Simulated assay, not measured.
Amino acid sequence: MAIWGADVAQLKNLGNKLQAGSSEIENQKSMLTKVLDGTQWMGPDAEKFRSEWSGQHVASLTKVAQALQEAGQKATKNADEQDQASR
Protein backbone atom coordinates (compact mmCIF):
# COMPACT_ATOMS: atom_id res chain seq x y z
CA MET A 1 0.00 0.00 0.00
CA ALA A 2 1.38 3.39 -0.99
CA ILE A 3 1.17 6.31 1.37
CA TRP A 4 0.23 9.61 -0.22
CA GLY A 5 1.02 12.95 1.28
CA ALA A 6 3.62 15.60 1.76
CA ASP A 7 6.05 16.87 4.33
CA VAL A 8 3.88 19.56 5.88
CA ALA A 9 6.78 21.81 6.88
CA GLN A 10 8.32 21.65 3.40
CA LEU A 11 4.96 22.31 1.75
CA LYS A 12 4.34 25.32 4.00
CA ASN A 13 7.85 26.56 3.22
CA LEU A 14 7.11 26.21 -0.50
CA GLY A 15 3.88 28.16 -0.06
CA ASN A 16 5.71 30.93 1.76
CA LYS A 17 8.47 31.08 -0.86
CA LEU A 18 5.94 31.25 -3.70
CA GLN A 19 4.09 34.10 -2.02
CA ALA A 20 7.36 35.88 -1.27
CA GLY A 21 8.29 35.55 -4.95
CA SER A 22 4.97 37.13 -5.86
CA SER A 23 5.65 40.06 -3.55
CA GLU A 24 9.16 40.46 -4.94
CA ILE A 25 7.85 40.62 -8.50
CA GLU A 26 5.29 43.25 -7.48
CA ASN A 27 8.00 45.26 -5.71
CA GLN A 28 10.36 45.06 -8.68
CA LYS A 29 7.55 46.01 -11.07
CA SER A 30 6.79 49.11 -9.00
CA MET A 31 10.45 50.06 -8.63
CA LEU A 32 11.15 49.64 -12.35
CA THR A 33 8.08 51.68 -13.25
CA LYS A 34 9.27 54.49 -10.97
CA VAL A 35 12.77 54.37 -12.45
CA LEU A 36 11.37 54.41 -15.99
CA ASP A 37 9.06 57.30 -15.14
CA GLY A 38 12.00 59.23 -13.70
CA THR A 39 14.32 58.57 -16.63
CA GLN A 40 14.78 61.44 -19.04
CA TRP A 41 14.48 59.65 -22.34
CA MET A 42 12.83 61.14 -25.41
CA GLY A 43 12.11 59.96 -28.89
CA PRO A 44 10.34 57.15 -30.67
CA ASP A 45 12.33 54.39 -28.94
CA ALA A 46 11.43 55.82 -25.54
CA GLU A 47 7.77 56.10 -26.47
CA LYS A 48 7.72 52.57 -27.84
CA PHE A 49 9.42 51.12 -24.77
CA ARG A 50 7.17 52.99 -22.34
CA SER A 51 4.12 51.82 -24.26
CA GLU A 52 5.34 48.22 -24.22
CA TRP A 53 6.26 48.46 -20.55
CA SER A 54 2.92 49.85 -19.41
CA GLY A 55 0.96 47.65 -21.79
CA GLN A 56 2.35 44.18 -22.08
CA HIS A 57 5.27 43.94 -19.65
CA VAL A 58 3.45 45.21 -16.57
CA ALA A 59 0.47 42.99 -17.41
CA SER A 60 2.73 39.95 -17.81
CA LEU A 61 4.50 40.60 -14.52
CA THR A 62 1.13 41.05 -12.79
CA LYS A 63 -0.08 37.70 -14.15
CA VAL A 64 3.07 35.94 -12.97
CA ALA A 65 2.78 37.54 -9.52
CA GLN A 66 -0.87 36.50 -9.27
CA ALA A 67 -0.07 32.93 -10.35
CA LEU A 68 2.68 32.66 -7.73
CA GLN A 69 0.39 34.10 -5.07
CA GLU A 70 -2.34 31.58 -5.92
CA ALA A 71 0.12 28.68 -6.04
CA GLY A 72 1.52 29.72 -2.67
CA GLN A 73 -1.93 29.90 -1.15
CA LYS A 74 -2.79 26.49 -2.60
CA ALA A 75 0.41 24.94 -1.25
CA THR A 76 -0.27 26.40 2.20
CA LYS A 77 -3.86 25.16 2.11
CA ASN A 78 -2.69 21.70 1.06
CA ALA A 79 -0.18 21.68 3.90
CA ASP A 80 -2.91 22.60 6.38
CA GLU A 81 -5.16 19.87 4.97
CA GLN A 82 -2.31 17.35 5.13
CA ASP A 83 -1.64 18.36 8.72
CA GLN A 84 -5.30 17.88 9.64
CA ALA A 85 -5.51 14.52 7.85
CA SER A 86 -2.49 13.14 9.64
CA ARG A 87 -3.82 13.88 13.13
Rank of each mutant, 00 (worst) to 15 (best):
Q19L: 07
T39P: 02
Q19M: 14
G38N: 12
W41L: 06
N13W: 00
A46I: 01
D37S: 08
V35R: 02
E24V: 02
N13Y: 05
G21P: 01
V35C: 06
G15T: 08
L14G: 05
L14K: 15
L36I: 14
A9V: 14
S30H: 09
L18V: 02
L32K: 13
Q28H: 08
S30G: 07
K29F: 05
Q40F: 09
I25H: 01
M31G: 04
E26T: 15
S30W: 03
N13T: 13
I25L: 10
E24W: 11
D45T: 10
G15L: 00
A46L: 03
L18E: 10
T39N: 00
S23D: 09
A46D: 05
P44C: 10
Q40K: 12
Q19I: 03
L36N: 02
S22A: 11
L18Q: 14
T39W: 14
G38E: 00
L32D: 00
A9H: 11
L32I: 12
V35G: 02
G43E: 04
L14Q: 11
A9Y: 05
L36F: 06
I25K: 03
L36G: 05
M42D: 09
G15W: 03
L36Y: 07
D37C: 06
G43K: 01
Q10I: 01
T39I: 12
S30P: 06
M31W: 13
S23K: 13
T39G: 03
G15E: 01
S23Y: 05
T39V: 10
T33S: 07
S22T: 02
W41Q: 08
K17S: 12
G38H: 01
N13K: 14
S22V: 03
D45P: 03
K12L: 09
M42W: 05
S23N: 10
N13D: 13
D37H: 13
S22F: 05
K29Y: 03
T33R: 11
E26D: 13
Q28G: 01
D37T: 15
L32G: 01
W41M: 00
S30V: 08
A9Q: 10
N27C: 01
G38W: 07
P44D: 15
L14T: 13
T33C: 04
L18I: 02
D45F: 07
Q10H: 08
M31H: 14
A20M: 08
S30Q: 14
D37Q: 15
T39R: 07
S22G: 10
S23T: 10
L11E: 11
N13M: 10
D45A: 11
P44N: 13
L36W: 07
K29E: 05
D37Y: 09
N16F: 13
A46S: 12
A9K: 15
D45Q: 08
K29Q: 14
N13C: 04
T39L: 15
G38D: 06
L14P: 05
K17I: 03
A46F: 00
S23W: 04
Q10N: 11
V35A: 13
Q10A: 12
N16M: 08
N16L: 10
E26S: 14
L36E: 00
M31Q: 15
N13Q: 15
N27P: 01
